[in-house]
Nucleic acid binder design. Sequence first.
RNA 1: GGAAAGGUAGCUCAGAGGUAGAGCAGUUGGCUUUUAACCAAUUGGUCCCGGGUUCGAGCCCCGGCCUUUCCA
Length: 492
Amino acid sequence: MSESDEISSTEDLGTLLKVRRDKLNQLREVGVDPFGSRFETTHAPGALRENFQESMTVRVAGRITALRDMGKSQFLDLSDLNGRIQVFVNKNAIGDEAWQIMKLLDIGDWIGVAGETFITKTGEPSVKAAEVTVISKSLRPMPSKWHGVVDPQIKYRQRYLDLIGNERSREIFRKRSLMVAEIRRYLQERGFLEVETPMLQDVPGGAAAQPFQTHHNALGMDMYLRIAPELYLKRLLIGGFEKVFELNRSFRNEGVSRRHNPEFTMLEAYWAYADFEKMADLVEDLICHLAETFCGGLQIEHRNSEGDVTKVIDLSRPWRRAPYRELVADVAGNDWWDLDTKAKRERCNQLGVEISPEMEDYEISQQVFEKLVEEKSINPIFVTHVSKELVPLAKTNVKDGSIVDVYELIINGAEISPGYSELNDPDVQRKRLEEQAGEEIQKIDEDFLLALEYGMPSAGGIGIGIDRLAMMLLGAESIRDVILFPQLKRKE
RNA sequence: GGAAAGGUAGCUCAGAGGUAGAGCAGUUGGCUUUUAACCAAUUGGUCCCGGGUUCGAGCCCCGGCCUUUCCA
């Protein structure tokens, strides 16, 4: 492979890039491949420091994240995702040729080190290098060594720099990954099968949201990215998959905010013969299990950038369960549900809840709920039995036909998880979807309604917003801090 | 879509109409147990972009781009 020495993007950074390019060329001149390949390791930097023993012969690889040059010896920090190990390099020990190579290394370069472990006189676990292998030369300067990257644009557009520079970000994404793995394990252990259903859908269903539209050329048809996997997972219930789940990416073509990314990760699970209350038990147990495993307990502390605790979420069980109407009445007056639409509007003015003129009666109540209940609920609460209009895919309550057998789990002022007793009557389902479709101009998924006519077992279903769950458990204030590559506007 | 705040060296940030600044990073020299290494010297700028006001604009005005927060 031949490589060009002329890289146009080196012009703008001037000297800093030129210096590193010069070192790159010097490495080649002394016969060192600046972009090496395989390097066998015996230990990883973080793990080695964690389980340190003296006088071991080790081979470690990692990125140089600090370099303290003492003249005829150097200390450098070799880092991986989980931590760092100090490497001590002595001119006499490695010889003149290798020492010359050491002088061509920078913070940011990847190297492999073979040597023996020892503890310095200041007590730092270290590796005394006998041999150093260049694994990859870094041609651009690293972020500030103790501020890391602060600029949100760089943080999100060049996440790798954020990960290199910010311990906190590494921690969030490492834990998020482990949490998702644990969710899988938890469900599989309880007999749930993980499945994959279409992201490209003919009729986007399972939620009320604007879809992204696309087009299939060969089939000559417009298609949509899914807004939820729900209707396909229910088809699997019909097919006899009694416990299923999908950890899915879904897409909603709506606003972008602190709590919304156009693509987001969701868990959906369905459990035949269960109902929404059994699903609430499951979700409560799962989230507490995650908190105990990854957050050291059920008291979740959120901290600001100075490290002061700004919020404590108490996940102690049992979590409160209360009907929607009771919660709204608590904040809007015991007579709320007896008021007509006009009186509700006046009450909203008194309460300082902004509503728009075109809102229907149930939407006004929903607005009160969102502003005065949801946003103010930090500790978990299962809000049960919401108005029928809000949830067209759940069973109507037997005693009160205006509400449905569902919960909405609120934690940290945001909806984390909905759970339903799933509607399995095909005729009622058709009617409810038609009522909703009338308002939102949505297509009815006829294929789903056909499937329902073959018989869907009674079932409980849940969704869990994984991004919001991660925010809550890991103390992130923005969804962008728990999504590796959040959506941003194109630059220029 | 609307409102507010922000965009200055590679990074983090000062700069309140009068010569463009600091710390870190980089470079050079010194130093063989340092860890935000230290000591000395030093390089580095399209002040987001485009107009305007002014003798003079990083700063004031107008328009645009991007980011953040709040609202819809």
